[in-house]
Structure formats: C-alpha cells, structure tokens
C-alpha cells in the first residue's frame, strides 16, 4: 500500500512540477537575468546604477506613497462596511453583492469613471448642483486614488468580513458587560482580534496598488507614474527590457518584504475562498 501510494504520487506531481518549473521558477530567474542586460544584450550593472538615480528613486517613492494612500483609504471605507455587513440579515447575499462588481471587467469600470468624472459627467453635475461648480476631476490625484480604492474595496472587505465573522460575539458582550464603552470595545477587543483580516486585506491591496498601470494611464492621464507603469513602459514602449526587469526585481523584493512583514498570505487566501 505504501509503495503503491508513493508510486502514484510521483505521477500526480509530474504536470504540477512542470508548471512550477516553467511558470514560477523560470520567469523569476529570467527577470533577474535580464536585469543584468543592456539594450544590446551585453552584461551590465548599469540598470542597477540607473535605478538609484533621483528619477527612479522619486518614482519608487511616489509609487509607495500612492499605494499607501490607496490602502489606507480602502481600509477606512472597508472596515465599517465589513462590520455592518456582518450584522445584516442575509449577510451572505449582501457579501455576494459586494463582490459582484469585482467580477465585472476592470477595464469596463475604469472606462465608466472616465465618463462619470468627465467635464460634463455626473460628478461635475453634482458639484454644480451643490454650488461648487465644475472642476477638473479626471486626470488628478484625487480621481486616481478614488478609482483605485473603488477597484480594491471588495478585496479589503472580504478578509475583514471573514475575520469579524470568526470573532466570538461573547467576547464583545463580555467587554460591554464589564463596562467598556463601544469605542473601547472596538479598540481593545474587536480590532485586535480581527487584525489578521486587516493584514490580509492590506496585503491584497498594497501589492497590486504598487504596480497599477492601466488606471494611471486612463484616469490619471500619465500624471502618476508608478513602478507598474514604468515596467510596462520599458517592456512595451521603449523596448528596454533590461531596465524594466531591474524595476521588476525591486518590485519583487518589495513584495517579499511586505509579505514577511504582514505574515503569510496563504491563510487569508484560504479564508477568502471558503466563502
């Protein structure tokens, strides 16, 4: 029986290991390899030297800054929403309705915002009604952050919702019985116990936010250059794959650092998938 089991195990592993080697290991190795190549294909460290020039440093910094803004705003909107969702009747249905927009093609939603935020769009009409008057919304930092938060909200709500669901309500009752105010209960009981969900959500938002590129072009009109935009630019426009790969290497390093800092993603993903 044992021998039999190990024999079949190898068979199952074959396609999967092939996938790992070809699409997980090889791409990473290739990215690192290309980061040492110049445009002609010769070996060089120039890309790394170039990365530490002020132009790229500034870009990296602003990329992190925007990703941070997006994550913080997503969290601020998502936490109360997730909390309120857990207290509705038919909460699974409501949750499904929250996730539904995220299953609609990202491009379509971004495209809708071009209309909504346009000079004669709905948002400007609202502003005019309230007496503020028409302003330029599209192609500003505000529109970029707003649309990004919009895109990422469901990914923040889901893990937090799951964390709050797992929270034992008697702990909250106990805190209230012992005289804690609602705010104190939240700060000392609810929030610390749902921190895992918050971490998972921040991870699910921050890492993709670092590398956004489609929204920067369509909504921010190339005003915001993130690491993602730069990689796309180098690979598909200027054809300087070496420099693009170098930025990618730093993005991978940043990503790994965030993963280590906020704990493993695996549990969070599994939790999210249980729904």
């Amino acid at each position: 029986m044992r021998a039999d089991a190990s024999g079949t195990r190898n068979l199952y592993l074959v396609p999967y290991l092939l996938w790992i080697v070809l699409f997980v290991v090889a791409p990473i190795v290739l990215i690192v390899y290309y980061s040492f190549l110049d445009v002609e294909g010769g070996f060089t460290f120039a890309n790394y030297v170039k990365f530490f020039t002020p132009v790229y440093m500034k870009m990296t910094f602003s990329s992190f800054w925007y990703a941070l803004l997006i994550t913080v705003f997503s969290l601020l909107v998502a936490y109360p929403a997730a909390y309120l969702l857990t207290r509705t009747r038919h909460k699974q249905l409501w949750l499904l309705l929250i996730i539904l927009p995220s299953w609609i093609n990202l491009l379509l939603k971004t495209y809708a915002f071009i209309g909504l935020f346009g000079t004669y769009g709905f948002a400007n009409a609202l502003l005019e009604l309230t007496g503020i008057g028409r302003t330029q919304i599209l192609f500003t930092d505000f529109s970029f952050v707003f649309v990004s938060v919009y895109i990422f909200i469901p990914f923040m709500i889901l893990p937090i919702f799951n964390a709050i669901e797992e929270l034992n309500p008697s702990l909250v009752y106990a805190a209230r019985d012992l005289g804690a105010s609602p705010w104190l209960t939240f700060r000392r009981v609810i929030f610390p116990l749902t921190l895992d969900g918050v971490k998972a959500g921040c991870q699910a938002v921050f890492i993709p936010a670092l590398s956004l590129f489609m929204i920067t072009r369509l909504i921010a009109g190339n005003r915001v250059i993130t690491l993602g935009t730069a990689i796309e630019q180098h690979f598909l426009v200027t054809q300087d794959w070496g420099m693009g790969a170098t930025i990618a290497v730093f993005l991978i390093i940043a990503m790994a650092a965030i993963m280590v800092l906020t704990g493993t993603k695996r549990k969070a993903v599994r939790d999210a998938n249980k729904r």
């Binding site: 791409p27 290739l30 690979f235 794959w241």
Partner: peptide
Amino acid sequence: VSPDVIIGASFLI
C-alpha cells in the same frame, strides 16, 4: 501574490 505586471513581463521574456 505577484503583481500582474511582473507576471506579464516575465512571461513575455
């Protein structure tokens, strides 16, 4: 967990 841009770029290579 990899950003799409990295997956795309590395697959292109």
